[in-house]
Each structure stands twice: as structure tokens, then as C-alpha cells.
């Protein structure tokens, strides 16, 4: 409790400091360049100066934090990828050579690609299907709420939940994992699912699909509701049936939203780490880039160079989406 109290105090101090900065810097600016009770020309000049400075007071802290926590690290990671394990001696392309020569990398890369294909596709597909169905039934909102719920659960919590489902007991002991219990019920042999090479990847992906479907559903459901009713009514008058209306009238109109959902999940997948760490820690052929990177950061005291090189690979995979996003945002701003 003492800790919580001190945390509260620190928090209040931090917030107050933040507020004091904004309040104080603005007051200082107004004091240095007063905009009242002065001759007109002086007011005009003061205001011009103040208006040039003030935006930077507002964006300043954000720019500083973003630079220090995101922008500078991107550059530093790039530089570190040419350095050795402590990040001090220059080793040229050695880390890259090591990376492209290691089997573990190819395994991670292959698995990441699998994740990239399966998870966004499955989550978007389920999201779209559920969104289109729940919009037409009276208890749709309750259903959506329940399917959306896993969004709130941490990856590690979800891992525990699913590890329990995949639980395996050898011999004739009763299976307490739901999946094996079902297999036994239908007369099959129970399996230690997460240790079966290759297929275990899919058992891990199920967890992320379970979490992300709700996200896809919420956004696609809003997009579906945004479709003008007239276009659907026109299609009905033109004699289209339900399936045709869905695929030929509705889906094309929300194509942009589907792309957004897809890329958002894709980015999340590239960063997926907790699930693999908790379920297998990369054993049995389930390694992925993010977990491999974490591993190298701390393995044997940590190898910064090799960790950085894996981070660079993840970054390179993200860049196309980043460019697309910026283009889209720019187009949007010009449209304003």
C-alpha cells in the first residue's frame, strides 16, 4: 500500500509538472510579448512573434518524446546492427552474414510469414462474417460484445487460457484439456498439441485470431452499417439475392476498411512475441522473429548487434505498410 501511495504521489507530481510546463511556458510567452495594453504596432509585432513560438510550446514535449523513444532508436538500431555484442566494436556486415546463415532465422522467418498469411486472413474473414450476421439479429450487440471481449485479455493471459485447452495427460488419465477431451470423446488419440512440429504453429495462431477477430468485427460492422441503404435497396430491386448483395454490393463498398483492418492486424502479427514466449518459447519449431530478437537481447548477457539485426528485419517488413499509411493520411488531409 505504501508503494501505491508513493506511486500516486509521483503520478500527481508528474502530471502537475506536465501541466505546469504548459501553463508556465504560455504565461512566460504572454509576459515576454504582451498582446494587451500596448501601442497597436507593438501589439501587432508581439503577437506575430508569440504566434510563431506558441505552436512549438504545444508540440514540443511530444516531439521530444517521440524523437527519443521512437525516431532516434530506429536510427540507432540500424547503426547497432553493424556492431558487435556490446554494441561498441564495428563488425561490418558480420551480423547480417550470421543472420542469413542461421537456420533459426529461416525457421523464424518462415513462421512469421505463416502468421502473416493466416492470422490477418482468418481474423478479417471471421470478423466480416460475424459482423454481417450480428447486424441482423436482435441480440447482435450482446454477441458482438462477447466476441470482442478477448481484445481486453493480455496475450499472456490468453496463452494460459489456451494452454489449458491444449492440456495433455498421458495414459488413461482423464483429459482435463478441452481439445483432448473432445478428441477422446470422438474416439481419437489424445495429443500433446503444442509439441507437434509445424502444426503447432497453427495452434498458436488460433490464439491471436481469437483475440483479433473482435477488432476486425467491430470496425467492419461499423463500415457495413455505413453503407447507404439505397444501394442495397437498388440491388434488391435489380433482383440480386442475399449472397450477391453481400459480395457484389456490400463488400466492394467497404474494401478500404477491409484493407485497414488487414494492415493493422498484420503489423500486430509482426510484433507478436508474448504468445510464442509463453506457449513454447520458440521450441518445437515455433520460433518467430520478435521472440528470437528478445532471446538474443538477453541470451548469455545479451548480444545487441544480433538483436538489432533482427529488429531491422522486422522494420523492413513494416516499411511498405508505413509508406501506404502516410500516403493515405496525406490524401485525406488534402481532401479536407
Amino acid at each position: 500500500m505504501g508503494q501505491l501511495a508513493s506511486a500516486l504521489v509521483t503520478m500527481i507530481l508528474g502530471v502537475l509538472a506536465c501541466a505546469a510546463y504548459f501553463y508556465g511556458s504560455n504565461a512566460l510567452l504572454d509576459w515576454l510579448f504582451p498582446g494587451k495594453n500596448r501601442p497597436a504596432e507593438q501589439i501587432a509585432r508581439n503577437l506575430r512573434i508569440a504566434n510563431r513560438i506558441r505552436p512549438w510550446l504545444f508540440v514540443g514535449p511530444a516531439v521530444l518524446v517521440l524523437t527519443f523513444y521512437l525516431f532516434y532508436p530506429v536510427i540507432d538500431s540500424f547503426i547497432l546492427s553493424f556492431h558487435g555484442r556490446t554494441g561498441e566494436e564495428f563488425v561490418g556486415l558480420a551480423n547480417y552474414q550470421w543472420l542469413f546463415g542461421s537456420d533459426e532465422f529461416y525457421e523464424s522467418f518462415r513462421n512469421n510469414m505463416l502468421w502473416l498469411i493466416v492470422v490477418p486472413t482468418a481474423a478479417t474473414f471471421f470478423g466480416l462474417v460475424i459482423a454481417s450476421m450480428t447486424d441482423r439479429i436482435w441480440w447482435g450487440n450482446i454477441a458482438k460484445s462477447l466476441i470482442f471481449m478477448p481484445m481486453a485479455i493480455s496475450f499472456i493471459g490468453a496463452s494460459v487460457i489456451w494452454k489449458f485447452i491444449y492440456d495433455y495427460r498421458s495414459g488413461d488419465d482423464p483429459q482435463i484439456g478441452l481439445l483432448n477431451a473432445l478428441v477422446v470423446f470422438f474416439g481419437g488419440e489424445p495429443q500433446a498439441w503444442i509439441t507437434i512440429p509445424f502444426w503447432n504453429n497453427f495452434f498458436l495462431m488460433v490464439i491471436l485470431v481469437w483475440i483479433q477477430t473482435g477488432f476486425a468485427m467491430v470496425i467492419l460492422s461499423a463500415a457495413l452499417r455505413g453503407i447507404p441503404d439505397e444501394t442495397i435497396e437498388a440491388a434488391v430491386l435489380d433482383g440480386a439475392n442475399g449472397v450477391q448483395i453481400f459480395f457484389k454490393i456490400m463488400v466492394p463498398q467497404i474494401w478500404g476498411t477491409i484493407a485497414v483492418v488487414w494492415t493493422t492486424i498484420t503489423i500486430l502479427v509482426l510484433k507478436v512475441f508474448d504468445i510464442v514466449l509463453a506457449m513454447t518459447n520458440g521450441q518445437w519449431g515455433t520460433q518467430v522473429l520478435a521472440n528470437q530478437m528478445f532471446d538474443w537481447m538477453f541470451r548469455g548477457g545479451g548480444d545487441f548487434g544480433r538483436g538489432a539485426v533482427i529488429a531491422i528485419v522486422i522494420m523492413v517488413l513494416v516499411v511498405p505498410i508505413m509508406v501506404w499509411n502516410i500516403k493515405r493520411a496525406n490524401a485525406e488531409m488534402e481532401g479536407r
Binding site: 521512437l70 525516431f71 522486422i314
Partner: peptide, 14 residues
């Protein structure tokens, strides 16, 4: 908008 998608992993080591 660009930083929105920068993976956390890039920042960890630096």
C-alpha cells in the same frame, strides 16, 4: 503517422 507502425522491437536495444 509513420511512427504509428514502428515496431517496438526497434526501440528496445537503443
Amino acid at each position: 503517422v509513420g511512427l504509428l507502425v514502428v515496431p517496438l522491437q526497434m526501440s528496445l536495444i537503443p
